[in-house]
Design a protein around this nucleic acid. Structure first.
Lengths: 138, 138
DNA sequence: TATTGTTATACTCTATAACTATA
DNA sequence: TATAGTTATAGAGTATAACAATA
């Protein structure tokens, strides 16, 4: 209900946006969600799946699937966490580290087109506000 | 890719927003999508299903389902279009017309709550930015 | 008892394709 | 041939619940 009944359009816009990003990232084998996880690891360093879920508002069962996919791509690896044999620490591999800047370039190119209707400052504001909104409801 | 790799958050936020709106509209039997169609009819007057789809970026097969639901609620009715027996003109009923302001009130109430985690100024900023974004792509 | 990760499953939303009846 | 509406179905995405291992 962010803007009245046009809530429908927000959902649609979000979906379209994701479809575009996913297509753009296809050459790397990535999707928007997978890149999202990569970025978390790049910013936060190696983390347990639970921590990744908390940091990224990702359900733990979904996190399993995402990390499975990244591991199949050779971009992350699961390690046993010292001191807690229940938990897995997920770490970027060299391939994952190298994929990040490439993925960012693809993403930035396609985003520039899509967000061209907003000025750069407004784009950053939008991201910050939505992040707060999502975190407030999780 | 609206928000770079955090695009994931946009989809999540959009879904949360819709879930809340749907719950708020339950007493009327409506959902956000159904209200969206009602608003189109309120603004544009009686239209064929094809026109509703074009105006609202709704797939024709989805439009069938939405209009079925609204008809079951007694808020719209299908009429034969004069001069084209393939087409149905969908018109608001009295009940549909009366439901609109009630639905708008519920929507406004729940929107205020959902955005309460942001200060009033930020709320306005977010709505403004999203509206510009959606309109630019629809 | 609680938590981490996993698996299987169900659910929602949307799009696609095939069908009918008209044009 | 093309179009309006319908139906059935498939697909993507996510959440839920039950489970095993461990704390």
């Amino acid at each position: 209900m962010l803007f009245g009944s046009a809530d429908f359009l927000l959902n649609k816009s979000a979906r379209r946006s994701r479809e575009r990003l996913d297509r753009a990232l296809e050459p790397l084998g990535l999707t928007g969600k997978l890149l999202y996880v990569l970025e978390i690891l790049g910013a936060e360093g190696a983390r347990t799946q639970h921590e990744i879920g908390s940091l990224g508002c990702i359900d733990r069962s979904s996190a399993v699937v995402f990390i499975d996919a990244l591991e199949a791509l050779g971009m992350v690896e699961r390690r046993q966490k010292p001191g807690d044999r229940r938990a897995h620490v997920v770490a970027l591999t060299e391939k994952g580290r190298l994929a990040l800047p490439k993925a960012r370039a693809l993403e930035a190119k396609v985003r520039r087109e899509y967000l061209a209707c907003l000025e750069p400052g407004d784009q950053r504001t939008l991201v910050a506000l939505l992040t707060r909104l999502v975190q407030a409801h999780n």
